[in-house]
Computed example of a mutant assay.
Amino acid sequence: MTEILQTPKLVVVFGGSGFVGRHVVRALARRGYRIRVACRRPDLAGHLQPLGNVGQIQPVQANIRVRWSVDRAVQGADHVVNLVAILHESGRQKFTPVHEFGARAVAEAARAVGAGLTHISALGTDLNAQSEYARTKALGEKAVLETIEDAVILRPSINFGPEDSFFNRFASMARYSPVLPLIGGGRTKFQPVYVGDVAEAVARSVDGKVQGGRIYELGGPQVLTFKQCMQEMLAMIDRKRLLVSVPWWVANMQASILGLLPNPLLTKDQVLQLREDNIVSDAAIRENRTLAGLDIQPQSIGSILPSYLWRYRPAGQFQRKTAE
């Protein structure tokens, strides 16, 4: 009797060429899914090809601000993942069109083809937030659940990993600057989560192992203040730097100027975000809406940071040998 081979499911990943996206694509590729990566510049997504077998990963052009491109990208999809987000506004990339209208467009397109949906949001989202980033992310969650009731929403804290823009940015600054700034005294709390753990949570939602219609909060095993994050990073790169407290009003002044740059180091909206802790809520812990609730053991920064921050040490990969 001839065995009939079943075609692997097709997963469409919006924003799959970015930092979190490449790890999500890798996790899905290992499971054997066919992956269509929807991004604005598919010509710059060649780095994704080695993550899967030949022909398994297909980048296509799509922009969530352009509805017809979203509809085209999800044709034939079994599941859709939306990772698209911006940290600051630039040109036509504004918070409301990307976070709210874009999220609704992806959800409506997924519903039209009968596909499941996993939406990546962020910790700290709040409909009443002063930060436009946090407020529009909350509006995006609302739009998604109004469109697809059983969608899975994941709210990660700050993601860290080889290509992150948090530890890498400050480690790079520490190579040349004798001081590092602590906005608001560095007392804001974070719960850094390894990007690989977030990708695994996304993959399990695609597998159908995550209950839909719920919002999951993803944080690592440690709650650290901003100051403690900087201290951990400096210890990893074996450098001593002066940590200087920057009052909120000074940070706002700096952000007003830096925010005018094409790729700003700091914006006024980010200063507003830093006024709020970025940690998993007690309600999420009680209701098992965390990584532990997904049977994922979160990895600590101590086990991951050395694997990619070594290049910022004074002697790079030879630092330990030099010290000895």
Results as ranks from 00 to 15, higher is better:
194 Y>P: 06
169 R>P: 03
263 N>L: 14
118 T>V: 14
162 P>L: 06
229 C>W: 07
10 L>Y: 05
269 D>F: 03
67 R>W: 03
85 A>S: 15
217 E>Y: 00
151 A>S: 12
234 L>D: 00
106 V>L: 01
260 L>W: 13
89 E>M: 01
244 V>H: 08
308 Y>H: 11
181 P>K: 09
91 G>Q: 00
200 E>Y: 06
254 Q>P: 08
63 N>R: 04
161 G>H: 07
94 K>P: 05
226 F>E: 03
24 V>W: 08
163 E>V: 10
135 R>C: 00
147 T>S: 03
279 I>G: 04
63 N>C: 09
95 F>M: 02
156 P>A: 08
183 I>W: 13
24 V>F: 07
69 S>A: 03
63 N>T: 06
90 S>I: 09
78 D>Y: 05
130 Q>E: 14
233 M>P: 06
208 G>V: 08
219 G>I: 03
125 T>S: 02
35 I>V: 12
244 V>E: 07
7 T>A: 12
277 D>I: 01
311 R>E: 02
50 P>S: 12
22 R>Y: 14
265 L>E: 03
182 L>T: 15
87 L>R: 12
124 G>L: 05
161 G>L: 08
298 P>C: 13
238 D>I: 03
310 W>N: 00
43 D>C: 02
231 Q>M: 15
61 Q>H: 06
246 V>A: 11
34 R>I: 04
218 L>F: 13
110 A>W: 00
5 L>N: 09
142 K>W: 01
123 L>T: 04
82 N>C: 12
152 V>I: 15
296 I>R: 02
293 G>S: 04
84 V>C: 10
141 E>L: 06
49 Q>D: 09
291 L>H: 05
315 A>F: 10
78 D>E: 03
319 Q>P: 05
24 V>M: 12
133 Y>A: 00
21 G>I: 11
298 P>D: 14
6 Q>I: 14
301 I>A: 11
178 P>V: 10
243 L>S: 10
294 L>C: 05
299 Q>A: 12
307 S>N: 14
20 V>A: 15
49 Q>F: 15
142 K>S: 05
121 S>W: 04
139 L>I: 01
265 L>A: 13
31 R>L: 13
204 R>D: 00
112 A>G: 06
202 V>T: 07
237 I>H: 01
107 A>S: 12
